[in-house]
C-alpha cells in the first residue's frame, strides 16, 4: 500500500520533469527569444546583445535549462522583463486567487453533483432524472463564456444582486476574494457538476443492478438502508478518479472565466502575459498549471487508494 503510493508519487515526479522539459523546449523552438519579444522593433544590434547578456540568454540551451530548473527548485521563477519584477512576486497572490475560485467552484459543484447524481440514478427514467440529466447535458454543451455572459446579464444587469465584474485588487483579503469569486465559481461549477453528475448517475444505476444489492433485498434490508449503506458507498468509489480529473480540468477553465469576469487570478494573468509577449512569465505560468494538474491527479489517486478497500488491502 505504502509502496503503491511511493510508486505513484515517483511517476508523478517523472511527469513533472517531463513537463518542465516540454515547457522549456516549447519556448526554445519559437522564433526569437524573450529579448526580441521584449524589445520589439528595437531588438537588434548592441541593444539586443546587451539584453541577452543581462538575461543570460547567450549561454547554450542545456546550460540555460539546468539554470532555470535549478532556480525553480529554489523557489525562484525568474524575472519578468515587461513588469520588471520577480515572477514569484507577480504570481503568488494570483495563484492564491485562482485556488480560491477553484475551491469555491468545487465546493459548490461536487456535493451538488453527487447528490443530484444519486437521486437521478435511483429514479432512473422518471421525471427528476430526465430533468436533471437534460439540464446536465445542456450545461456541458454551453461554453463558459456564453453561460458567464448570461449569468452576468441575469444577476448583475437584470437583478442587480452583484457586480458584473470583479473590481477589487488582486491583494484583497481572503474573505472579499471568496465573495468576489462567487459568480465566476457558479459558471465553473455548472460544467464541473454536469460531468460528475452523469458519472455518479451511471455508477448508481450499475450498482443497483448488482448481485449484492439483490442479496441485500433478499436479506431483508429496508430500502433506505440498502441505498445509503450498500449502493451509495460502492457507486462513489469509481467516481473519485473522475472527480479528480474534472477538478484538474477546472484549472484550464479558469482562463476563460477569469477573463470574462476580470477576476485577478492566474488565468487572466496568463492571457495578459501572452498579450504582452512576456515569455518568462508565460513559461512560469504554464509550468504552474502543469504542476497543479499533476498534483491534483496524484491526490485523487491517493484518495482512491485510501477509500477503496480493494486497493487499500492490496499486498504487493
Amino acid at each position: 500500500m505504502l509502496g503503491l503510493i511511493v510508486r505513484r508519487a515517483a511517476s508523478s515526479l517523472f511527469t513533472l520533469i517531463l513537463i518542465s522539459v516540454v515547457v522549456f523546449a516549447g519556448l526554445e523552438f519559437m522564433p526569437g527569444d524573450a529579448c526580441t519579444a521584449h524589445l520589439g522593433r528595437d531588438g537588434k544590434g548592441a541593444v539586443l546583445e546587451a539584453c541577452r547578456a543581462r538575461m543570460g540568454l547567450d549561454a547554450p540551451p542545456v546550460k540555460r535549462f539546468t539554470q532555470w530548473a535549478g532556480d525553480i527548485l529554489r523557489g525562484e521563477l525568474g524575472t519578468s522583463m515587461q513588469r520588471e519584477k520577480p515572477i514569484t512576486e507577480i504570481v503568488g497572490w494570483r495563484l492564491r486567487n485562482t485556488l480560491v475560485l477553484s475551491a469555491v467552484a468545487a465546493l459548490i459543484g461536487i456535493p451538488l453533483a453527487v447528490l443530484l447524481g444519486i437521486i437521478a440514478g435511483l429514479r432512473r427514467d422518471r421525471l427528476f432524472d430526465m430533468a436533471a440529466s437534460g439540464t446536465a447535458l445542456v450545461a456541458m454543451t454551453i461554453p463558459e463564456f456564453v453561460s458567464a455572459t448570461l449569468l452576468i446579464l441575469v444577476f448583475a444587469v437584470g437583478l442587480g444582486w452583484t457586480a458584473g465584474v470583479v473590481t477589487i485588487g488582486y491583494k484583497a483579503p481572503l474573505l472579499e476574494m471568496v465573495s468576489a469569486a462567487f459568480l465566476p465559481a457558479v459558471v465553473l461549477s455548472m460544467v464541473l457538476a454536469a460531468h460528475i453528475m452523469r458519472m455518479v448517475r451511471a455508477s448508481v444505476i450499475d450498482v443497483l443492478k448488482s448481485d449484492f444489492v439483490l442479496m441485500a433485498r433478499l436479506k431483508g434490508v429496508p430500502q433506505q438502508q440498502i441505498i445509503w449503506r450498500h449502493v451509495v458507498p460502492n457507486s462513489l468509489l469509481p467516481v473519485i478518479s473522475v472527480i479528480g480529473l474534472t477538478v484538474a480540468w477546472l484549472l484550464g477553465g479558469v482562463v476563460i472565466v477569469e477573463s470574462v469576469f476580470n477576476y485577478p487570478g492566474l488565468g487572466r494573468l496568463a492571457v495578459d502575459a501572452v498579450g504582452d509577449r512576456d515569455l518568462p512569465l508565460v513559461q512560469a505560468i504554464a509550468l504552474l498549471f502543469g504542476i497543479t494538474y499533476v498534483v491534483t491527479n496524484l491526490m485523487t489517486d491517493i484518495a482512491a487508494l485510501l477509500l477503496n478497500p480493494r486497493l487499500r488491502t492490496y499486498r504487493a
Binding site: F212, M215, P309, R310
Partner: peptide
C-alpha cells in the same frame, strides 16, 4: 423485510458478487 433473511433465508449463487465489496 422482517421475513426475508429471518425465517426465510437465501444463500446466493455466487457469494463473490453477492457480498457488498465495501
Amino acid at each position: 423485510t422482517a421475513l426475508r433473511g429471518g425465517r426465510l433465508a437465501m444463500v446466493p449463487q455466487n457469494a463473490g458478487t453477492a457480498l457488498t465489496p465495501s
